[in-house]
Write a protein that binds this DNA or RNA. Structure first.
Lengths: 136, 136
DNA sequence: ATAAACCTTATAGTTAACTCCAAGGCAAGA
DNA sequence: TCTTGCCTTGGAGTTAACTATAAGGTTTAT
């Protein structure tokens, strides 16, 4: 599969795929005789994973860290490091989920009490209970 | 409350607070005789809301849109627009939560099947089922 | 009364993550 | 064979969201 097809399949641009490969977010992709990239299932799996994790808000840097380890010899140490990274990233995601749930609560509170609450909030009028005292 | 106190209370920098005010993410803050910012409860509420929504991944641009409306006369039209924005942002957050839950599934799958699966994935060896066919 | 530690605005610089461009090679159809 | 549409690399440009600097005013402690 050429780069354009691979890019559109995952809703990315060819430039982004080349960029990801160049900076080491994913390992070097298979090439054909002319030196063109020819994406295999393995490469597509990498794109899928990278896309998911990027969309979830993980940084390029943490993905490079993981991809780098993935290309090393799988010694005990490297395996342990990989597991650590995966677990760290899981924790990051769990935190983000928690944060989003809190924000969701705040926002739906503001929507529910829109008329009496938000009007006061946006005006200069005094508000009895400050929002930031965690009274969602 | 001066800018430094306000900033540290919400784990931001004074520069960021000035920046938020300048670009219109929040309305102008109360000033004292010397022209120094003196944050009131109302201002702190704004910071709280902005921080939450930024941390949840909403863009500066959408916050400017909301803050701009909040400073207008509260006509029927403006109220409708504000409610629309709040509901749109709620939808954005719900999408993000959904996305994170999917990613969480993928990641914990990779952790659970680490030894048999990830090793194959990272190597050049063939993988029977492509990840991107939604088989989490 | 002077130094330290705040504050102000205006403007320039930084960082992350792309995104685009130039210059040129390869492949398929009229 | 020539045009169209891919592809390549290297490097420059862009955008969002800060972050830092300069030049100067205020407040507080010694």
């Amino acid at each position: 599969m050429n780069i354009k097809e691979a890019a559109t399949k995952f809703d990315l641009t060819a430039d982004t795929l080349r960029y990801y490969e160049r900076i080491g977010v994913m390992p070097p992709v298979t090439r054909n005789q002319s030196g063109y990239r020819d994406y295999q299932v393995r490469d597509l799996n990498w794109i899928y994973l990278v896309k998911k994790l990027r969309d979830a808000g993980l940084t390029i840097e943490s993905l490079i860290e993981f991809a780098t380890l993935a290309q090393m010899d799988r010694t005990q140490d490297v395996q342990a490091a990989q597991k650590t990274i995966l677990n760290d990233q899981l924790e990051v995601i769990d935190q983000k989920i928690q944060e989003l749930n809190d924000t969701r609560k705040l926002l739906s509170f503001k929507i529910d009490t829109y008329d009496e609450h938000l009007a006061l909030f946006a005006d200069g009028k005094t508000m009895p209970d400050p929002l930031w005292k965690e009274n969602l």
